[in-house]
Design a protein around this nucleic acid. Structure first.
Lengths: 206, 206, 206, 206
DNA sequence: CATGAATGAGTGTTCATTCAT
DNA sequence: GATGAATGAACACTCATTCAT
């Protein structure tokens, strides 16, 4: 929908109902009839978009049983969704803090559903023994998610790498880090010390 | 300044000159006298804030000669700056796309200066042989930067971890990745294959 | 009907068709189907309500043959009707001036019927010699009517006096005035001089 | 001011800021600059108008020492003020119930001041022994006030009687009542029985 | 006959900006 | 330089009314 694109391009406050109606090819009155409040439209846009993204991710991870591969595929889908000009997921992630509290309350379900997809993928990898032990999985989730999401700040269509290439590159960096074999300490335990879930948890962050 | 905080909290379009004047304890007339256009104020806020952040980072990295340690310290300072409610750096990173083109032109210098600090730090580490060979350093920069910047989306003061703790944890994850020793391939070369600068470059992204 | 109540509470302009439909428990489409224009609804509300009030008054005055008693009873009924939250009579009296001219034209009959009830009661009392001679009966009618109608501006259900008590009290004041016997002039003729119908008439007022 | 006239003519909801600006010969922006909210304008209009009316009444009653004469003069001034097309007093009396509660709170002072002028005049007459004993003075006040106020519902400039003539006529009717000497009971005490302040008071009405 | 989507004029209000003092 | 009144465009939103189903 054009609404999502304008919300993303101009911000929630900067996107006007008039502009959205115009770009959507409908009349202002018709738009406000269906969505009496601007927040209703925002909510509908986010809900539908995020629901679609969740479904797409849940589908694509079926293609593999290997946890890491599943994560890689999910990141691909997520990044492609995120980079769409009318991405509802982008809105969810970037405008969350500016949403009126009541809108946030209504979106909490859909947001939770999106988050839990990722948490499950991370937990699967952890359970399979493929992540360093003692990692705070919540923090890992935020790290993985954040690294990929940041692409939206600099990606431009027609650039040097496709979204899939970027997703794969970031997957690799997330997996093995940036250090050369020479610089890598023989055991990473001490480096990651203090990141375990046994430390103060971040579960209570919003 | 209160202006930066409101720009961040409400978005550029959502923060009004009236509101800024009020929160700043000055009169609207006085504000518009000094900054005839809203974009003038935005520009001044960003320029001063980013200049301050650059200086702070340049100072702190003096404390060490080890490239990785310098990077870790820089990430700490950067994250602390980023999480401040009135962070100009946050504005620079998150509202860049919504700036009018002329504002972007005027800010390109200061943004370039900030970016180059990071590029130099990454290049130092690479030159010292501490990063995996054949990495696209521009992509590494974006990865490191992005991962840390994303903290601003979920951090809340008074949460489980301090900004410094988060910066250190992310530094470690960036360094060695999330994989356990068992899951890590014996040589990471193939995994990072295709990420080298010899591939299509991302230098021309905005 | 809820329509009358909302018209009274919020004013004609302030009461919306949507609100009326909602409070009436019907759908907006159904309301506008039956009353295509807002003025149609207003008209119907007034017509039905006033007709009912006229009937009630005409009935109650049958209970007595004494003109003054008939007036007192009529005032009681009138005041009770006037103080109902959905009083059509209140609307007729208070929103008359704001009605579109065409609505006024259609309501003139029913309004005339209501007025003539009162005029007849006043004339009966006059013919029976119970009113001071040479009074302009039209002015008396307006005086009596106005004094009682004003109660709607300050009456609150659950207050100190019931509507009937207020009606009786005002009837008494209208009858004998507020002056003490001592202050009352021996003959009231001169005081009422110039009020006769022989003076310029008020019949042509709206 | 034109604002008061439009508020009166069309009701508070029916008078638009645009219409008021136009009739006032100023621009909408200028109007909303001075009165950011419609209720601010309404408040200012009422406050200024009522203050003026109170002053006018307080001045005119100086002309006489006789309580009844003072009341008559006050009623004259009051009625003239009330019949002005831009009467703030009319607004105060007729739109009071539709005012938002916060506006009512802010107007309570000025309304109280207006009411107390009348209460004092009634009490003076009572103290001078010129009113029937045992009258509930609050009710008398409401009766006198209401009878005169109702003139606004039917008066039209250029009609048969001038406002002063109407005020005098109503003063006379209020004073001695409508009954002929023949119909008047030898003693009015029983008729007014139960109206004394010893009965349930109306002081608590709004 | 009943419904509710569609419509566009109109509402109060906010806004960045200008300008005279 | 500092101020705040003035301005008019734009805003989200409400409304009575129309019309296809």
């Amino acid at each position: 929908m054009a609404a999502a694109r304008l919300f993303r391009e101009r911000g929630i406050a900067g996107a006007s109902m008039r502009g959205i109606a115009q770009e959507s090819g409908i009349l202002l009155g018709s738009l406000t009839h269906r969505y009496p409040k601007k927040s209703d439209l925002l909510l509908a846009v986010m809900e539908a978009g995020v629901r679609r993204a969740v479904t797409a991710i849940e589908e694509v991870v079926e293609a593999s049983d290997a946890p890491l591969e599943r994560l890689r595929l999910a990141l691909r889908v997520h990044l492609n969704e995120l980079l769409a000009p009318d991405s509802a997921v982008w809105l969810l992630l970037n405008e969350w803090a500016r949403l009126p509290e009541e809108s946030r309350a209504e979106l909490r379900d859909v947001r939770q559903r999106y988050d839990s997809v990722w948490q499950r993928l991370v937990e699967e990898a952890s359970a399979a023994g493929q992540l360093s032990p003692d990692l705070d999985l919540r923090l890992v989730h935020l790290f993985v998610f954040g690294a990929v999401n940041s692409v939206a700040h600099w990606y431009e269509p027609g650039g040097a790498r496709t979204p899939d290439e970027i997703a794969d590159a970031f997957s690799a960096l997330i997996a093995v880090g940036v250090l050369s074999d020479a610089a890598r300490p023989p055991t990473v335990g001490p480096l990651l010390h203090g990141m375990g879930a046994s430390a103060r948890s971040v579960d209570d962050c919003d």
